[in-house]
Amino acid sequence: MVRLSDLPGPVGGFLGNLPMPEFDSTPWTDAPPLSEARVAIVSTAGLHRRDDRKFRGGASDYRLIPSDIDYADLAMSHVSVNFDRTGYQQDVNIAFPLEHLHTLAANGEIGSVGEWHYSFMGATAPEQFAESGAEVGRLLKDDGVTAAVLIPI
């Protein structure tokens, strides 16, 4: 996440004034050793397979991205224009580092890569993701995933 002080005035002002959520508790669980972890990506970049449904404003659902996806089959339909897309145009790994996860797994640095990864469209109010977020949590668990990399855009 960019430093607010590095954002141009109108963007920084908008993000800086968003209300911060408050939580009643601070859940914590011990993670398995990285070398045994099964890792998946959860992105808010509005990514999806090219022939999947595009995101619309206010979307709180998610798209499924298989672990063997060819980057040529990946599209981004995030509704916000207030983030850079030129990095993603040149190199998908800057926003969705699936190739790097496979590299870490091949090196034995992580145990394995999840079969599926998930993408939301992050311009929606966070509380609206409660249902779909819980569903993705269940799906990750079903896949045996023990660590998720949450990557904002």
Partner: peptide, 27 residues
């Protein structure tokens, strides 16, 4: 900057370092 969560395009070593650093927090 927004849109570049792993830092720089076409720099896999830097991107991997960012990713390793994030994963290391799990320990």
């Amino acid at each position: 900057e927004l849109g570049r969560p792993l830092g720089a395009p076409n720099d896999p070593e830097f991107q991997l370092d960012v990713l390793r650093s994030a994963l290391a927090l799990l320990e």
